[in-house]
Amino acid sequence: MEITTQEFKHCDLFKVKGRVDSATAPDFSSALEKANNDGHYKIVIDMSELEYMSSAGFRALLASQRNCKHLGRGELVLVSVPKRIQEALELAGFTELFKTFDNTVAAVGSF
């Protein structure tokens, strides 16, 4: 797994590549927590190059969404979710917890 971050005026864009499982999810969580600890609660996750995500990754997303939405200070949104990952998120009932966008421009522009 590889994460690259880009700060925009109104939100942070995280691009996560590769595979998020129990081995790599802690690093994914840490990156999201660091943004929150720096006072950044408007987060876009670009999943276009994500190959795989297990429930360990779903839990990291859930924890971060709670933190971002707390006190109405922000939100975490998803972009370009690959089909298989989208299906797994639907099975877990997670799609109703996250807004999703087809491209990063729309997602970044939503904040």
Binding site: S55, R59, L91, A92
Partner: peptide
């Protein structure tokens, strides 16, 4: 409960739930 709202959503048990579903 996969329909619980954000604040009530459980963190645990999801892996087993997925195994059963898949």
């Amino acid at each position: 409960d996969i329909h619980a709202d954000l604040s009530n959503r459980q963190i645990g048990g999801l892996g087993i739930y997925l195994m059963r579903k898949l």
